[in-house]
């Protein structure tokens, strides 16, 4: 329990920062619906800049669910959620800085302290990972549930079932940047360097997916946005499984690095 308590103490600043950013963007999204008339043509043009299939773009219609998908799932959260996942991971699975920016020497002092305790390294990682997953679940489901709760304020309704489905998809998709963040931060002690490397990777991946033919059977950002659920109303279970397995494999690699590394 004490390791969960410690992990919570070091996670809470990042969690609060992420929740604040998500809540603000969610409010802006819903406010936009009230302020602007739903301009389907403009939304389609916006989506054409991103790596979505023509089928998905064509599916955008004038209803509220379509507006939410185009503005929140396919746009506002697209880079935000993976970046938050990497921010949660970027403190490192062992050094565990709690602030948004930790100096490398503080991280090495924290690592030295944690490694002086009578605990196996993988146990430290297990607790750290568990609290990280909790944060990811909050980041994935809170905005969806906020949309359900706040939609009546703009005289609209949003399906609870859709919220849960998109939340589950976002959660599964965030596992990959989270695991990547763990690997990067297990190799690089300085938080800012590991975070910048992760953000660079995410942006590069977005550009790559946009450049490559977006009709590829599986693309990360399309999966994260819940494009398949939006167009077919069916959860892409194979994508969920692929994200989970890939994240598990990457996390296993991070654990191996930490187990073998000298501090």
């Amino acid at each position: 329990m004490i390791l969960l308590y410690k992990s919570w103490l070091e996670m809470r600043v990042r969690l609060a920062f992420g929740l604040g950013a998500i809540s603000a963007l969610c409010l802006v999204t819903i406010w936009d619906y009230q302020k602007l008339t739903h301009n389907v043509a403009r939304d389609k043009m916006m989506l054409m800049l991103l790596p979505f299939t023509q089928q998905a773009i064509d599916s955008v219609t004038a209803n509220y669910s379509s507006f939410i998908w185009a503005h929140w799932n396919a746009f506002n959260q697209l880079l935000l959620l993976p970046m938050l996942a990497m921010t949660i991971a970027s403190a490192g699975i062992l050094p565990n800085g709690a602030c948004l920016r930790e100096r490398g020497d503080q991280n090495s002092a924290a690592a030295a302290f944690m490694l002086s305790l009578p605990v196996r390294r993988h146990t430290l990682l297990l607790y750290r990972g568990a609290i990280g997953l909790l944060a990811l679940a909050i980041f994935a489901f809170v905005p969806q549930l906020m949309i359900v709760a706040l939609s009546p304020l703009v005289s609209a309704a949003y399906s609870f079932q859709d919220a849960l489905a998109y939340g589950a998809i976002s959660f599964a998709a965030m596992l990959i940047p989270y695991a990547l963040g763990l690997v990067v931060s297990s190799l690089i002690d300085d938080d800012m360097t590991s975070r910048l490397s992760s953000i660079f990777f995410l942006i590069a991946l977005l550009i790559l997916e946009r450049t490559i033919n977006p009709s590829q059977p599986f693309a990360y950002y399309r999966f994260l946005s819940g494009e398949a659920y939006f167009t077919t109303h069916e959860i892409l279970w194979i994508g969920m499984a692929a994200c989970t397995l890939l994240a598990a494999a990457i996390t296993w690699a991070a654990i191996q690095i930490v187990e073998r590394r000298d501090y």
């Binding site: 410690k6 103490l9 070091e10 565990n96 800085g97 709690a98 602030c99 930790e102 020497d105 503080q106 090495s108 002092a109 924290a110 030295a112 302290f113 944690m114 002086s116 305790l117 009578p118 605990v119 196996r120």
Partner: peptide, 20 residues
């Protein structure tokens, strides 16, 4: 792990958990 249960270590980096 048993060693760290029975022996106390103070390393050259003495900052422990600076954010707490």
């Amino acid at each position: 792990v048993q060693i760290r249960q029975r022996a106390a270590f103070v390393t050259e980096e003495k900052g422990t958990l600076g954010y707490l």
